[in-house]
Write a protein that binds this DNA or RNA. Structure first.
Length: 301
DNA sequence: CACCAGGCAGTGC
DNA sequence: GCACTGCATGGT
């Protein structure tokens, strides 16, 4: 069974490259598959902003409409972005169709614990390996659901290292055991005020400021959180003269951050490999997303 | 084959 | 409080 409907400001091919979810894949030009919430969904773009979802109408409305945040007016969110903020306007123009998903907090927590010092591709491989080893099968799908905290809590560090998690293996294990034991209740903390939710997430080993912000943004829909990673650090250094613009972004700071993140990452590593971690004034960079040009050469050392 | 990745915890000052 | 360092592994 399937449902076809028009969806403005929605592009699954952009979302699957956005680095917020790790189990959404392009199978071919007409099919995107995602494994989430213990289910498998395939989406087919028909062109002209129309999409077919391979599920029944009730599941679309009760599961996938909230998951993809389809009831939020992203045109209005984008229109509310500061007009004078040229880099942000550029990123929004180039990354239409992006949405901040409402993901499962447990899977989101694991995904971003695994994210530290990894390429997104490698995070995806880790998440797939965990699912294949410990996840439950999904009917009619070749890929498993993401494993529960209980299931991961029963493993040992060596088993998780064998899947390629490296030094993050004990971090995932700590998260699993806190959640499985009830010491960390991921459902209950959803109701907490921002700073208290942040503090609860920080109690998990391997969860620092950036990972906690990602879990809040992508797993708890706290749109004010704007995670700062190496790419955003570059954006701040290169396009904002070293002064973070996020404090002025208000209720949608997290969404705007995601446009800037995606756009900068698309421009590529070659643009400026040396400024990560350092804040230094740099010349204006002409951000033309259509042409993937390297920016003007930096100052010589 | 160097260098880097959606960072964090530990240490030293 | 801030700066520095080691960390496991796979992509590019």
């Amino acid at each position: 069974m399937s449902v076809t409907l028009p969806l403005p400001c929605f592009d699954p091919f952009v979302i699957l490259e956005s680095g917020q979810c790790f189990r959404m894949n392009a199978m071919d030009a007409q099919t995107v598959e995602t494994i989430a919430l213990g289910r498998c969904l395939r989406i087919h773009p028909l062109g002209a902003g129309r999409f077919t979802f391979d599920c029944d109408p009730d599941t679309l409305d009760s599961v996938w409409r909230p998951y993809f945040d389809l009831d939020t007016d992203y045109a209005a969110v984008c229109a509310a972005a500061p007009k004078a903020d040229a880099p942000l306007q550029e990123a929004i123009a180039c990354m239409g169709g992006l949405r901040i998903l409402r993901q499962d907090p447990w899977e989101t927590l694991c995904g971003f614990i695994l994210s530290q010092r990894r390429h997104i591709r490698a995070i995806r491989a880790n998440m797939e390996a965990l699912s294949k080893a410990y996840g439950e099968p999904i009917e009619g799908c070749t890929r498993n659901a993401f494993p529960t905290a209980e299931r991961l809590a029963a493993q040992d560090e060596a088993a998780l290292r064998a899947l390629g998690l490296g030094y993050r293996a004990p971090y995932v294990l700590d998260a699993a055991r806190r959640v499985a034991s009830g010491r960390l209740n991921l459902e209950a903390i959803a109701a907490l005020p921002e700073e208290q939710l942040f503090a609860e997430l920080r109690t998990v080993a391997g969860v620092g400021v950036k990972v906690a912000d990602c879990v809040m943004l992508f797993g708890y829909q706290r749109l004010t959180r704007a995670p700062v990673d190496v790419w955003i650090h570059r954006v701040i250094a290169e396009s904002y003269g070293g002064e973070s613009p996020f404090a002025g972004y208000g209720a949608y700071a997290g969404i705007y951050q995601q446009y800037l993140f995606m756009h900068r990452r698309k421009l590529g590593n070659s643009a400026n490999p040396q400024t990560a971690g350092k804040v230094e004034r740099t010349p204006e960079i002409p951000n033309e997303c259509s042409k993937k040009t390297a920016p003007a050469p930096k100052r010589k050392p």
